[in-house]
Simulated scan of single mutants.
Amino acid sequence: MIQSASAPLSTRDTQRIASHAALADAARFLHPVHQALLHRRGWLSMLAPQASGGAELPLPQVVRLEEAVATIDGSLGWVLTLCAGAGWFAGFLEPELAREIISTRRVCLGGSGAPTGFADEDGDGYRISGRWDYASGAPMATHFTLNAVLRRHGQPLLDEHGGPRIRAFLVPAAQVQLIPSWNSLGMRASASHSYRIDDAWVSKEHGFTIKPEAATAAGPLYRYPFYSLAYVTLAANVAGMASHFMQLAQECIRHRRHAGQDLPLIEVPAVAALLHNKQQAFASARSHFYTVLDDSWAKVAAGETLTAADMNEVQNTSLALTAVSRAAVNELYPLCGLYAAREDSVINRVWRDFHTASQHPLLMSL
């Protein structure tokens, strides 16, 4: 069951996520209640084609759901986003293989985009070896996606520009060895560990190309550009965490007093103005972000191809929302007091999650 776009999360699901977030953070992996919710709601296959057993939801609905989850718990929102995003790749696999994978019990696709391994041609398939980092949700993954340099007889194959040819692959978890390596300050429950593969053979059908013209599913979701999809889903997560932080920061400020003026801190004009300005700037950037997302989706759904200008607008509004979120978190945190520095406080966990998630290389605004 997938919630409607008008109500991304039910009250009950919101309570389930919130009440187990601290336990998940301490355990450094999603709580079993969180995992069960992901599977029960079908969220991990919400971007997979309907023909393969997925929900194939409209992208704006997906992004709003991801933001709603991240607003409650950053780690769960991140795992949902990255693993559902890997499920989107089913729209580029051979349909029979896609159905087989998406029908897997408690299916969850994890992975990494860095081309830090090799795929050597071997008969009707490839032998894959390498190590990949930052696979969010790795302990619950049933399959892993990866990028690898293609080789023939040990020599890299070259593309039309003279660089190494890179191909995406999907590998069953049984052929993968997890490497516990996720020791970050925040996003602890995302368990974004490394993994390695040692000379695992997969058939050629397990390789795929992520381009609209290479899609094997016919829906508009698979004609939406990959990097545009990545920008909007990542930015929505960061926005969700920032929104949560601002809510908690306002409560902290409300309960503090200004030492010099002996006033509730929230009543100090400069503080009240700062809080208001950050909230308004965030609301404006978020509204524009969704306007651009909705417009871009409408174009693709109508059969149009996004132009370079369209894709740049999607990227720029995503980065603008991220920048406004960073400014709000960074400027309000010093007003929150020592409670916000306590590792066992909710606001501290949200602050840690935000600063870890916003390190994603696509979200650099320089």
Rank of each mutant, 00 (worst) to 15 (best):
L332C: 01
R165V: 11
R131H: 06
D13M: 02
L363W: 06
H161V: 13
A249F: 00
F282Y: 15
A51V: 13
R342F: 06
N316A: 10
C83N: 08
Y339C: 07
L362E: 09
L362T: 13
T145V: 14
D295G: 05
I253H: 00
R16H: 08
L338I: 12
A218Y: 14
A119Y: 00
A285C: 14
A341C: 09
Q155D: 12
T116S: 05
T104R: 02
S129D: 10
L265I: 14
I128D: 00
V268Y: 05
N330I: 10
G54K: 13
R127P: 02
F118A: 00
W132I: 09
S6E: 15
K204E: 15
T81A: 05
H143G: 05
R349D: 01
E121T: 11
A235E: 08
V324H: 07
A26P: 03
N348K: 03
A191K: 09
E331D: 11
S45G: 14
W78E: 06
K278T: 15
Q175N: 11
V171M: 02
A5M: 13
L229K: 13
I72D: 00
T11I: 12
V232M: 14
I347C: 01
R188L: 14
N147K: 15
G87L: 00
A259C: 13
R196C: 13
A90N: 09
A214K: 10
R349W: 04
S284H: 14
I17Y: 02
W201Q: 09
R256G: 12
A272N: 15
V346R: 04
S181N: 10
R326S: 07
D124R: 03
C336W: 01
Q359I: 12
P60E: 02
G53D: 14
A24I: 02
V324T: 12
W182P: 03
P225W: 07
Y227A: 15
A298T: 14
A26Y: 07
A68T: 13
F354P: 02
S4P: 15
R167S: 09
L306D: 10
V346E: 08
F354D: 02
C83H: 00
T307F: 09
F208M: 08
D198M: 12
A272T: 14
R342P: 04
H143Q: 07
